[in-house]
Nucleic acid binder design. Structure first.
Length: 478
RNA sequence: GGCGCUAUCGUCUAACGGUUAGGACGGAGCCCUCUCAAGGCUUAAAUACGGGUUCGAUUCCCGUUAGCGCUACCA
């Protein structure tokens, strides 16, 4: 039975890298009909926040990702303690009584700290005694030294891995507060929850050797491992909220108007490939195609800039999804965006607008800029020079608009009816159709680039069109 | 510093010893066209460097360089 888990520590918002780790675990679980487990690794009491836990749930909910079991590490402290005692009893751990602040920072700088001097040698009796009288200590793993042995494992992505035990420091298992460290808690829970495959970020690749030592000391069968390449910023640095801003938080992408399906699709393409040049894939296709074989080994960069905070490929993919989705479904997605922007609009009306903008928006939020003139009665101020068509002057613009008023007053307000009338009007004025359409478009939309004219006029309706053209005529006259 | 991992167009990636090094995004150009999109076509753009192994290296080995990760009583 395949059992995988996503184990975020709730010390910050759900970020893009975490989301991708969840997705890869989820894909693997669903592909094999296994179980997806969500475990909140909240052993760092100092830095945990409820806000962070909420953001993890919010994010996963937005992405429409589900899981089968859920745990909180802080509720499983007894289990961790038991494992620590077991390891101590077997002689694979020892108490380190070095005061917390002693030599703080110095050892690491000296070039490879492995353990605090003298602590490994304290006898069991003395150790037990000092602990019994309440002296503070940190429980450390007694890494085998001088034996020349290597710790090895097979990683499903990175292949055979090996590290000399002599290069591994005596990492902590229990803090002086008695609280378990990440390494201990994670291993204890992974075994207890029968996790079959640990799929996580590559930053844990070297930690794996420590984990293997823990499993071995406790006489436990370790899970399988698959490490994922990291997500980087365009500057080559690891993505961090501090230096790269809101892009690292997935709520930013949500609020920016991404579709969850498109976003998940995009994330899957970062560090993984189906190897057949497919890019746009449904969730089922992704589940079907996913395997460790397709996972890359080098880090992937999420390409954003100061001016453009979203990866162009993600935007393109999102546009692709928007273009191909059913208009009714898109209307449902667009409605809250428009309403939240403060526009009073009926779904019914928006449904008529959707087809006009569907292939012109890349993000849901684009509806606000692309379709603005549909939403408010008054047009945003524009330069009257915009009304003047190519190879024409103000006089021509005026003639066109006056003719348009006359034409639209009686035209049949349908796409075809409008096209016939306006083309006829152009002919009557002996001008090119484009010269006729351009002033009308600007008068009605307030700018030169807009959705197709006839459909736009039709949706706007005769009354508003005539009113706006009249206003344009007025602008030109003075 | 020590240890580990990685290295193909600007970016995401394909090519598991033999290809004119492929695709996608983005860029440029052309076509279509009522503007903008969408769509179609074309185009520029990469195997980090140096040694091996081999008839033949993007691919295997070694070194260099660079980047990333770990090196906490964070995870």
């Amino acid at each position: 039975m395949i059992r995988v888990r996503f184990a975020p520590s709730p010390t910050g918002y759900l970020h893009i890298g975490g989301a991708r780790t969840f997705i890869f675990n989820w894909l693997y679980a669903r592909h094999h009909g296994g179980a997806m487990i969500l475990r909140i690794d909240d052993t760092d009491i100092e830095r945990n926040t409820d806000e962070s836990v909420r953001s993890i749930f919010d994010g996963l909910q937005w992405l429409d990702l589900d899981w089968d079991e859920q745990y909180r590490q802080s509720e499983r402290l007894a289990l961790h303690k038991t494992l620590a005692n077991e390891i101590l009893a077997r002689g694979f751990a020892y108490r380190d009584f070095t005061p917390l602040d002693a030599g703080d920072g110095a050892p690491a700088a000296a070039g490879g700290w492995l353990f605090n001097p003298g602590q490994r040698e304290i006898s069991r009796e003395e150790s037990d005694h000092r602990a019994a009288i309440g002296e503070k200590f940190v429980l450390r793993f007694r890494v085998p030294r001088g034996t020349g042995e290597a710790v090895t494992f097979h990683d499903h992505v990175y292949g055979e891995q090996s590290k000399m035990a002599d290069d591994i420091e005596d990492f902590a298992l229990l803090r002086s507060t008695g609280a378990p460290t990440y390494h201990l808690a994670s291993c204890a829970d992974d075994v207890d929850l029968h996790i079959s495959h640990i799929i996580r970020g590559q930053e844990h690749l070297t930690n794996t050797f420590k984990h293997l030592l823990i499993f071995r000391a406790a006489g436990l069968e370790p899970p399988q491992f698959a490490h994922l390449p990291l997500l980087m910023a365009p500057d080559g640095q690891k993505l961090s909220k501090r230096t790269h801003g809101p892009v690292v938080s997935i709520t930013t992408w949500r609020d920016g108007g991404f579709l969850p399906e498109a976003y998940v699709n995009f994330l899957c393409l970062l560090g993984w490939s189906p190897k057949n040049d497919r890019e746009k894939m449904t969730r089922d296709e992704l589940v079907q195609a996913f395997s460790f074989e397709g996972v890359n080994r080098s880090n992937a960069v999420v390409n954003f800039t100061d001016t453009d905070s979203f990866d162009p490929k993600a935007v393109w993919l999102n546009a692709e999804y928007i273009r191909t989705m059913a208009a009714a479904e898109l209307t449902d997605k667009l409605l809250p965006v428009v309403q939240n922007a403060g526009h009073n609009i009926e779904r019914e009306k928006l449904a008529h607008i959707t087809p006009l903008i569907q292939e012109r928006i890349r993000l849901l939020n684009d509806v606000l800029t692309v379709g603005d003139f549909f939403f408010s009665d008054e047009l945003a101020p524009y330069d009257s020079a915009e009304l003047i068509p190519k190879k024409g002057d103000a006089a021509l613009a005026l003639r066109v608009l006056e003719k348009a008023v006359e034409t639209l007053a009686s035209a049949e307000f349908s796409h075809d009816g409008l096209e016939t009338s306006l083309r006829g009007a152009a002919e009557a004025l002996s001008i090119k159709a484009g010269q006729m359409f351009e002033p009308v478009r600007v008068a009605v939309c307030g700018r030169k680039t807009a959705p197709p004219l006839f459909g736009t006029l039709e949706v706007l309706g005769r009354e508003i069109c005539l009113k706006r053209i009249a206003q344009a005529v007025e602008k030109l006259s003075c």
